[in-house]
Design a binder for these strands. Structure first.
Lengths: 219, 219
DNA sequence: CGATCATTCAATGGAATTATTGACTATAAC
DNA sequence: GTTATAGTCAATAATTCCATTGAATGATCG
């Protein structure tokens, strides 16, 4: 037997993974990396944090087996270690959604009517895409859209939403999505579209999940 | 936008859940509670920790939405908030299993041959149970066995394994299980059974998962 | 009502985590 | 070479987390 019991040694490893997930900024990094590999530089810019800080977090995450790094020229490109990392993050989000009143309160903040915040599922969207009676909006920044998106989706970054309102067909239903189930950009978009009288809903989850299902296209 | 951005507020809630999972003792508590509701008292005894310490951890977990408490007479009985908590713990274990060399090393410590540590699935066991050509060992303590177990399983707590060796049919395959995928008691049992010449494997996961599939019986 | 048991609370000190700063290394461009 | 860029490292101080202790609360039982 090793010095501490193997049981405890195992739980310490599991705890290391969970503890490393236990920081808002690191979760945000995982969300970003869920879109695809990124350099430290770009990640720091997306988060609006100092490079040194982001670098430290990424290394903490590397030690916990969440991400891997590879040098490419003068950049160091990080990526998620594997799909189980996103799965773990989603599982944690589900716990929070089910059991923390605070989460409900934040989500509710975007919508008045309780029943209208139900998201549309991936399968449902697939079906309605074939009918052609739905407009799909990808509200992520253009660079993320370029790396992969739902086929037929329009890229309308949140900042440009108001300007694009007149070009949208008010007869069609609108489905908005962004980076994941709790990426608030799609919340914000749906909320604003509804205020303008559109029938809008959001997709139940976002890009990495859609891509994992094998349906994404690059532009 | 609100004082802290809603995005950050959400991630802080998720991080709270993950951070709370990030402590070995709390993971052990979840493993125990996965078996069923428990009093603080009993949990403290199972973990071998001071009651005050366990109480503090449980309250931390309650604040993070992982567990719920209910007073029953002079006891306070804690239980998992819902099934998503176990799912999150399993997702984290999967990340660790896939990406942390240390976990592999610990598991490997129990077994010499690489290929022989593959667990048997629940479905496979269900099938072989009908054939009757397999002995199922539940290596948890008797009190946990009493609250629910795989139909037909023999309760042989780890401490009594050696004494029971002679009563086992060496012609049958043996499947051992305990509390979950990484409860080391089943590792230990399989390792010792093999050393005695038995054909032993462990079940891919343990009691809460089997119960969740709707197949457990109480004794 | 007192006594006892189960649990929580409050306070302590020690350890770990975090953001920030500035120095340092490695690569590419000139 | 020299310079600029991308990233890491090392050191600091502020904060948070953790186990332990002993006191306080709440419920049962005689």
């Amino acid at each position: 037997m090793s010095s501490p019991s193997p049981k405890l040694a195992l739980f310490e490893q599991f705890a290391l993974v969970a503890k490393t997930l236990g920081h808002p900024q690191r979760l945000e990094l995982i969300e970003q990396l869920g879109q695809g590999p990124r350099s430290v530089d770009l990640l720091a810019e997306k988060l609006g944090s100092p490079i040194a800080n982001v670098s430290q977090h990424l290394q903490t995450m590397r030690r916990a087996g969440l991400v891997a790094a590879e040098r490419q020229g003068k950049y160091v490109v990080y990526r998620l270690a594997d799909a189980s990392v996103l799965a773990a993050m989603q599982a944690i989000q589900r716990v929070a959604e089910n059991n923390l009143a605070e989460v409900d309160k934040i989500v509710r903040g975007y919508f008045e009517q309780r029943d209208s915040l139900e998201p549309i599922t991936r399968d449902e969207l697939s079906g309605r895409l074939r009918d052609g009676m739905v407009t799909v909006l990808d509200v992520r920044p253009a660079d993320e859209f370029a790396l992969g998106h739902v086929p037929g989706a329009l890229n309308v970054p949140l900042a440009e939403l108001d300007a694009c309102l007149t070009t949208l067909d008010p007869e069609k239903d609108i489905v908005a999505y962004c980076r994941g189930a709790y990426c608030v950009m799609s919340f914000e978009a749906v909320s604003r579209l509804r205020a303008q009288g559109f029938r809008a809903r959001r997709l139940e989850d976002g890009m990495p999940q859609w891509a994992a299902a094998g349906n994404a296209v690059a532009s």
